[in-house]
Design a protein around this nucleic acid. Sequence first.
DNA 1: TTGTATGCGTTATCAC
DNA 2: GTGATAACGCATACAA
Lengths: 346, 346
Amino acid sequence: MASAATINDVAKMAGVSIKTVSRVVNREPNVRQHTRDTVLKAIDALNYKPSMAARGLAGGRSFLIGLMFDNASDSFLVDLQRGILRACRERHYGLALCPASRAADRTADLMEWVKSTQPDGIVLTPPLSDDRTLVEQLLQIGVKFVSVSSAGTGLGPAVYIDETHAARAMAEHLIEAGYRDIGFVRGPAEHACSELRYQGFVEAMQSAGIQVNPDWVVTGAFDFDSGVEVAKKLLAQSSRPNAIFASNDDMAAGIMHEAYRIGMKIPADLAVAGFDDTPMSRQFWPGLSTVRQPIEQIGQQATELLMRTVSPVSLATNDENKNPSPDSNMILPYDLVLRPSTEPAA
Amino acid sequence: MASAATINDVAKMAGVSIKTVSRVVNREPNVRQHTRDTVLKAIDALNYKPSMAARGLAGGRSFLIGLMFDNASDSFLVDLQRGILRACRERHYGLALCPASRAADRTADLMEWVKSTQPDGIVLTPPLSDDRTLVEQLLQIGVKFVSVSSAGTGLGPAVYIDETHAARAMAEHLIEAGYRDIGFVRGPAEHACSELRYQGFVEAMQSAGIQVNPDWVVTGAFDFDSGVEVAKKLLAQSSRPNAIFASNDDMAAGIMHEAYRIGMKIPADLAVAGFDDTPMSRQFWPGLSTVRQPIEQIGQQATELLMRTVSPVSLATNDENKNPSPDSNMILPYDLVLRPSTEPAA
DNA sequence: TTGTATGCGTTATCAC
DNA sequence: GTGATAACGCATACAA
């Protein structure tokens, strides 16, 4: 097993200098077509692949995108990764994972990862994207980053959907289907979208002239178990809602599960709506109405936005030229996915 | 924003040579305690973090573990990542993702990624772990790798559960619950586990003296939609099974969905069993009986196995010392998770 | 126990 | 257009 070919081997074989090889590899101009062809042939013959490590060291770029996440749902994470990877593939970038630790100094851990890995850019997911402490430190050391799905801090660029508008649309759908006794399950406060989605719900209710019943507004943790818990609370009340809008699918699933357990029919006895369009929402019986976020596309766009700001080897020597401004934000369309779980009451 | 401190800065501040700093950072012996303290203080003061790129280039190690996957299910992928990341954290390793492309020369793409990224080790997931062409090329260039969840090729080390035994146990459970008309849904042929799980099913049936009905053995693609499809086939027959053992949960979910659609009750009219214990299996109503693989633990063990063989900077110069032998395989325990979907027929 | 010098495979700065 | 040559930040023989 001969150790992999280097740029020197290619240069030797092509009879040119390594700089010329470098030019060809990096698609720089000012190389005669004939020279380029010769080099390319040599590259092919030796099966030469540039070393990321060396490129990183010499060029100040790691060709690595970092994905920072904390406690994200499976499908969200995977979809996002898919989108990021698709964007990475073309530009020969790699994706490195950076999970938040459970440690007390979560932020310190994350920053350490950034400093040692030195990714060229970071994709920040909620709730990290809503963490002002973290974002400010990121900004301070001058690393490029972009938030996905809401940027609660208002700092740095972000790619997301109009959560409030989407939640409002779903609530309006419930109302149009004839439901008026609608409960709402909020997400955790650390997620900026929790408030946004709730706002949408409230707006729809107000527009329809329906009073929001505070007894029917509860808070969950964005997971299945908390969905079960809040369902127990909501459905045990003497006067209970006949529809529940959960601010994500996992909680909605918990609600449906609990409703079935106590013998309720969906949507006959209880309509349920979710948010996120996880695979589960269509696999459940009956299918769960939900809001589809184009997560994969969000990941891809976020990454491309990131690379656009990175490509001209801007090592951010001047503090002014740090990150793309927040006004390079990107708002993608959502889809209202209507399934039997919210069909009109009989 | 001062550019990050380097080993030189630390050496200067501590009044020692860079080699000494290097010794301290890498926890090498032969450093006086006092010197070590001085250096550590400087490291702390300057907030020094070694550059992965430089370490990689100079030391021949990238401190990166690669995760190669193709078409894996969300929860499998995420659980595995969790395990790998846990193992990585302690040793300050990073995790880089390497998805298989849809291109014709999938293997070539993967190998290109390996050559340019130069991970210190690779975690191979099915069906890639069962792909002899890929595995042989990996072996040839001398990269360390370990397969998870079956190694169909028999080459290289692997961490997995006894799939056949697990499938057999589940089938036996169905039989003990009183079911005899049991259908089976195989997985795709490219997955080595498909055959293994089927074997377990057959063994259980034979032991119980029950004839396997070939009309009730069908093949799916390990996803929800194929579960729906095979359910349509199986349940449309004049003589149909009253229990179906799907070789993974996603297909089982499809079967349950279709069963509900045509008005069947589970398990009263049809018992269903799956394999994998995806989150969905407990979220469905009724809960789905399944086999739990300790995916997260598998990922962790696989990674630790990988690092054990990597740590002594063995750059595999001699062809003999390539990978840990297949007998360093690891078989982890599985769990039979019994839920209402397979309760005894009435 | 500690330090010096060299090299890792690129990129980048200049000359030519 | 092209090519020497010096970084880049670290590891590692080899000295001391």
